[in-house]
Every structure is written in C-alpha cells, then in structure tokens.
Design a binder for these strands. Sequence first.
DNA 1: TCCATTGCGTTGTACTATACAACTACTTCA
DNA 2: TGAAGTAGTTGTATAGTACAACGCAATGGA
Lengths: 144, 144
Amino acid sequence: MPHRDASVETIQQEMTAFARRARATAARMHPELSLVSYTLLAHLDDQRGCRATDLAAHYLLDKSTVSRQIAALEKLGFVERRVDPDDQRVQVLHPTEKGAEVLAHVTESRRQAFHERLADWDEADLDRFAMYLRRYNAAQERID
Amino acid sequence: MPHRDASVETIQQEMTAFARRARATAARMHPELSLVSYTLLAHLDDQRGCRATDLAAHYLLDKSTVSRQIAALEKLGFVERRVDPDDQRVQVLHPTEKGAEVLAHVTESRRQAFHERLADWDEADLDRFAMYLRRYNAAQERID
DNA sequence: TCCATTGCGTTGTACTATACAACTACTTCA
DNA sequence: TGAAGTAGTTGTATAGTACAACGCAATGGA
C-alpha cells in the first residue's frame, strides 16, 4: 500500500473514532448543555442573535429540530425571542444573561480540557494541526 | 492572545464542528449502516469475532445498547452468533458473508470519499495530519 | 386590491441511539 | 453446594432527529 493511502486510512479511522465518541464525551462533561445546544447557543452569542431558520441552514438541521432545541433552551432560561418588528413571522433569538453565563462557563471548561489534552504539544505542531483541521473541514463543507 | 491559545481555540472549534456533522453525514452517505453499526461490524471483522461485552467495553457503550445494535445487525443478516462451547453464556459474534460484503462496500466508499476530500493534499501534509490525529485521539483515550 | 405563493415557525408522528435497572441463565470459587 | 460474579436481554425512559401538515405573516402579480 502506498504511503499516501496509509495516511488517508489513518485519517479516516481517527476521524471516525473521534466522531463516535464526541457527543457522549461532551454530554458527560457538560450535562447542562449538549453538544448541539452548546453549538446553537454559541452561534447566537457569536452572531449577536439570529433566526431559527439561519441556525437550521447553517447546521443542516431540520427547522423542527431547531424549533425544539430552542424551545428547550428557552425553557432553561438560556435563550429569549424578540419578534422582528419589520416581519412578524420572524423571531430573533438571543442568549439571555443566564444563557451567556452558562455558555461562557462551558466554553471555558471545554477550553481547559483541550489545553490539558494538548499540553505536551509544541507550538509548531499545534499550529499545523489547527491549520490541517481547518483545511479539512473547509473541504468537507463544500461537499455537505 | 498568545499564538498557542489561538491554535488550541481553532482545534477546539474545528473538532466540534466535525463532531456535530459526522453522524448525519455518515447516515446520508450510507443509510444501510449507521456510523455506530459500521464501527461495530468493522470491529468484529477486524478482531475475527468478539463478544458483545468486549464491544461495549471498547466503545464505552452500555451492554444493552450493544445488545440491540447487534440484534439489528443480525436481523439484517450481517452478523451471526456462535455460542462459545466453553461458556454457554458467551456468544461470539462474527460478520456473515453478507455482512462482510456490505462492510467492504461501505469501507471502500468511505475510503473514496476521504481520498477525494484529501485529493489536493500533498503527501507530507497527509502524513503529518494522520500523525496528529492519532496523537490527539490517543491522549483523549487516556481521559475517557 | 385580492388571492396565490412563499417563508417562518410549531406541532404531530415516528424512528434511532442511548442509558439504567431488573431480570434470566450460566459459571466460578470458597 | 450455595453465594457471588458475568453475559446478555428486556422494560422503560430520554434525547435528538426527520418529515409532513399546519397556521400565520408577507409579498407580488393580475
């Protein structure tokens, strides 16, 4: 087997292994915010509010899924809805203060977990790994 | 922000993005074999048979989850059970011929997808990316 | 202006993956 | 030989997801 194929094989295996574990790991670490709701809340925070439809489009989720996720986040008091005065159909979603706090807390704890996992990597390796991941995902997005 | 932190941040973001998408992508590509059942079947093939308990331990799944996954794979005719003559409690699981064929087919099609995604990477980058992923997951496993 | 079409979001329904607990059947060991 | 442990199944509950049908608001062409 050519060397190139072996590398692709490894990448495939490792990405698969990672994907298999990721949600469960995230759920164990942060029972209060699943990987999906974390992502949605982070997006709201990042974008300073957006619509449910935008979330659905961005994350390739059905609008009903987003609707229920948002309903759950609202019930937890993490998200609030503001009806767009220019279009009564539209609800602009924002993290509440509480939501922003929880998000910051989870983000920080995730950040720390990543830092610990990568503690013995030198800066050049980290830099290259980050670059490769970004490149890989960017290529992926064009396909999905 | 130090450069090191920026790299870790990127790694965190990209790994999260990847994890979020992976299952849905896999399901869309291979409706006949979810990411989990693919993994289990591949493990059986790789190990030339093993017990449900081993699968549960290896993939950090509850034994009931594995039991149902295997039942589904058996119903599809992809897995067969052979009671261990030395211990009547134990069922050694094996891919059937049909299961091995489907596995080979899905593996090949996944391999191709990865090859396409990584087509414009040069060999040195592929090699390093594979190494980094392996290193990252190995560190992860010690924590999980 | 009016109605057909489109867009946003919710709800009903169904399915998959998962965990935990209770159970049965078998094995091991003191 | 009986208690404790192990393998696997089943009951039950929950989360996440999709698809279809719906209600309501907006928009645009006749």
